[in-house]
């Protein structure tokens, strides 16, 4: 099981790392300037000049994909950061005050946010402020907060029943200090695994939002928008719909495999046996 966990982790890390590397590389180099139009070269199939072909304006698809990776990954990473920054302290707090009003409010608040899927939050924000990549980040980030709060709380609650927490209390430590010193390091594994999962969900959600026009706006390329643009031309230029989709699938697949591998590797139940 451990061996398989490690293999899964590596395959996942390589896939996700590849797209991350492309995103970073796009800052210094792309095969063509991603927005450069060349009508004479429109709808080129993949070939030596344009590896993944060109779109209806003769723009290089590979270059757009690289810059699109940047958008997707940035949105998902920031959304995970928002979720962790908001959710982890709330989860720790709720667990430390189990059964109190604070705990109840944090939990019910989380339930309430869960009633607003990311796209609904995005719709609300967009209807007032207009569409932008920032909306996507906010919408996904807000949805991530209760996710991390729940995971943290659940992990922390099981730790709070352990005797070393009682020992720390006997040593006169306050709940906040115990939460930071004892609880947080021991829920870190859970958070890393959940972080990878939310990262991949973030990429999917960003793609969905920019596909319906609630995310990144032109001229910023994004995978979801490339797909939306390709839809009317699918009958005669299917490659335009294939490549951005594959990029999403492979990135998300990589992140999920990484998450599974990490879970196998970090799960204390599996570790105790070794």
């Amino acid at each position: 099981m451990r061996g398989r966990g490690r293999a899964t982790l590596w395959i996942g890390a390589c896939l996700a790392g590849f797209f991350l590397a492309l995103a970073i590389l796009s800052y210094v180099w792309t095969p063509y300037p991603y927005a450069a139009m060349d009508i004479a070269q429109k709808f080129r199939p993949p070939g030596p000049l344009h590896w993944l072909g060109t779109d209806q304006f003769g723009r290089d698809v590979a270059s757009q994909l690289m810059v699109g990776a940047r958008t997707s990954i940035a949105v998902a990473v920031v959304a995970v950061a928002i979720g962790m920054a908001g959710g982890v302290p709330l989860g720790l707090w709720a667990a430390a005050r189990r059964g109190s009003l604070t705990d109840e409010v944090i939990q019910r608040g989380g339930d309430l946010v869960f009633a607003f899927p990311a796209i609904v939050i995005a719709i609300l924000i967009t209807s007032v402020f207009g569409p932008s990549a920032l909306n996507a980040i906010l919408a996904i980030g807000i949805f991530n907060i209760p996710v991390f709060a729940r995971v943290t709380r659940a992990g922390a609650l099981s730790l709070w029943t352990l005797d070393y927490i009682r020992a720390a209390q006997v040593a006169g430590k306050r709940r906040a200090r115990i939460s930071v010193e004892h609880i947080l390091p021991n829920v870190a594994n859970l958070l890393i695994v959940q972080g990878t999962i939310q990262f991949s969900l973030g990429i999917l959600a960003e793609a969905g939002l920019s596909y319906v026009g609630l995310g990144a706006q032109p001229p910023t390329p994004s995978w979801g928008r490339m797909l939306a643009d390709s839809q009317t031309m699918m009958a005669f230029a299917p490659q335009l719909a294939i490549f951005p989709g594959l990029a999403i699938v492979l990135t998300v697949l990589g992140l999920n495999l990484m998450g599974d591998g990490l879970r196998d590797l970090l799960d204390p139940r599996l570790r105790r046996r070794s």
Binding site: S200, A207, L227, S230, G245, I248, V249, N256
Partner: peptide
């Protein structure tokens, strides 16, 4: 299922 989770539903719809 690993594949199914990774595929965006709208892209799957397009395919």
């Amino acid at each position: 299922t690993q594949l199914g989770i990774a595929v965006p539903n709208f892209w799957f719809a397009m395919l």
